[in-house]
Amino acid sequence: MTEEAILQGCLRNNTTAQRELYQRFSPRMLSVCYRFAHNREDAEDMLQEGFIKVFSQIHTFQNKGAFEGWIRRIMVHTCINHLKKNKKFNESVDIIHANSVQVREESVPSIVQAKQVVECIRLLPIGYRTVLNLYAIEGYTHKEIADMLDIEESTSRSQYTRAKQMLEDILVRKKIIQKPKEKVNWLGIASGH
């Protein structure tokens, strides 16, 4: 079934098209949810809630940009709303294996596997982890993050800076990267971000 056929079927509430959409996109969207979730059950709840929104809002998709990108934005906002609703920004987290992650910065050393980075990101406090995910992986600006999380833009920037430092410390401690002899921005991001 083509993406256009799936979209048209979902607009008509066709259960076969809805099932196809879910099967096609749920593995990638579950990976997105894992990066934000406190545990596997929360990730699955976020995924289900996100797909309910996708199906109920599918009529708003205007074929501007990728359909998957539209679904991903709904998932990210669903995850943020879930965290806000459950006030989980101050809780510590455990490691859950995620399927994949695409880091926006291209200079991450090739020896560092994406899965290892995701596991280490999951060790960050949830506030740091959320800002890092939104900025470095999802590509949102600090202004957009501040609006989403109801925080100041400067808070987003400082949480991101602290998250990067904490993540680097974790990666060094787990021997995934070596401690740089001089201050190196291993994520390849300019300091002013």
Rank of each mutant, 00 (worst) to 15 (best):
K53L: 11
Q159G: 05
M75F: 00
G139Q: 02
E44N: 08
I121V: 15
P27T: 07
V117C: 09
M29H: 03
G127E: 13
M1S: 13
Q62A: 14
I126D: 10
Q57A: 11
I176E: 01
Y128Q: 15
T2S: 14
L123Y: 10
D45Y: 02
H38D: 10
L123V: 13
E91L: 13
E49V: 08
Q57F: 07
Q178H: 03
G69F: 02
Y128H: 14
V118C: 05
A17E: 01
V117H: 07
D147F: 15
R129A: 15
M75E: 02
F89V: 04
R35V: 01
K53T: 09
L11Y: 09
A146V: 02
P27V: 09
I177T: 11
K181N: 06
S110Q: 13
A66L: 01
V103G: 02
D169V: 04
R19Y: 04
C79M: 08
H97F: 10
C10N: 05
P109Q: 06
F36W: 03
C79N: 07
Q165G: 11
G192V: 04
C33N: 03
A163V: 12
K183I: 10
K53W: 07
T161P: 01
M166L: 10
I137A: 14
H142W: 12
N63V: 05
E68I: 00
L47D: 01
E20A: 11
